[in-house]
């Protein structure tokens, strides 16, 4: 049971982080290879505030999210005007710089040895409620003026500007929202593992999240959610393969990306309308 619960909790935490990548990559077409750094900021800020300064939980979590958003502002301001490929380079550098900073400020962060003894506050209900709330916020964002304008600038930035869209502002807002979500996933992570180390937040995590968004279908939020669940549970089902586990996992991901270039869901979304269409079809089938 604990095993099932802990896997669900990690899936939920990963999902909230991946939602941030979905906003940046899926919706806006940018690449952030430093997204895990926001997770680190969220986790570390809340942990240090609670452990070292006895700040109560709610303000500590709020401050952690604010800190992640400030960091997003810091990276976002100079980068949103850059070309897309430069953004991925700058965010990659930012992410690694945060890891180096955590290593160097050993008197606050414990350096490479990490912070231990963080209270375990993340429980299954907390994660489930968080996932529902974060997912609802992202669905709203996608289906509002923000989401439409993001998709517009992703498909044609010049045309988007010509339709009166302030693309820099929009990218920055999306970046901040994504930073807040990813920061919050870091808070949940720290409060679940009770231990944080800089090495857990390197660019590989950011790259994995980007892969998840692509496997799901860059334009589909439903696909992103499905791919997160699939790719966090897949390694568990592959445990029987022991040392071949990682290799098999990679082959499966490659096959999906190769044979479904648009991802599992492509651009489709699970909405009441498509659901009705699906149900309608199965009802008619037996006749």
């Amino acid at each position: 049971m604990d095993y099932f619960v802990s896997t669900v909790i990690f899936t939920g935490i990963a999902l909230i982080g991946v939602l941030g990548v979905y906003l940046i990559t899926g919706l806006t077409g940018l690449f952030s290879l430093g997204q895990a750094a926001f997770m680190a900021i969220g986790g570390y800020v809340s942990a240090v505030l609670i452990r070292n300064y006895n700040v109560p939980v709610v303000p500590a979590v709020a401050l952690a999210i604010v800190a992640a958003m400030l960091a997003a502002l810091l990276v976002g301001l100079p980068t949103v005007r850059l070309r897309r490929d430069y953004i991925s380079l700058v965010t990659l550098g930012f992410g690694e710089a945060i890891v180096a900073l955590l290593n160097n400020s050993a008197n606050i962060t414990g350096g490479a040895m990490g912070i231990s003894g963080i209270p375990q506050l993340t429980t299954l209900p907390v994660v489930l409620v968080s996932v529902v709330v974060c997912l609802a916020l992202v669905i709203l964002y996608k289906n509002s003026k923000y989401g439409r304008q993001c998709l517009a600038l992703r498909s044609d930035e010049l045309a988007a500007k010509s339709m009166g869209i302030d693309v820099y502002r929009l990218k920055l807002i999306t970046f901040l929202f994504a930073g807040a979500l990813t920061g919050y996933s870091g808070v949940l992570f720290g409060f679940y593992t009770t231990y944080l180390e800089p090495a857990a937040f390197n660019w590989i995590i950011s790259a994995e999240w980007t892969i998840i968004v692509f496997v799901g279908g860059v334009n589909s939020l439903t696909g992103t959610v499905l791919a997160t669940i699939l790719l966090t549970w897949l390694p568990e089902f592959l445990r029987f393969a022991s040392e071949w586990r990682v290799a098999i996992y990679c082959v499966i991901v490659l096959l999906i990306v190769n044979y479904r270039t648009a991802g599992i869901m492509g651009e489709r979304e699970l909405s009441p309308k498509t659901l009705r269409r699906l149900l309608g079809r199965t009802k008619e089938a037996p006749r």
Partner: peptide
């Protein structure tokens, strides 16, 4: 019963819980 950790904290927690189960 051997569990892979991939030298990763998250994997290890899942692995430990799986062993306990």
């Amino acid at each position: 019963i051997t569990m892979d950790t991939k030298a990763n904290v998250q994997e290890a927690i899942k692995g430990y819980n799986s062993l306990v189960s």
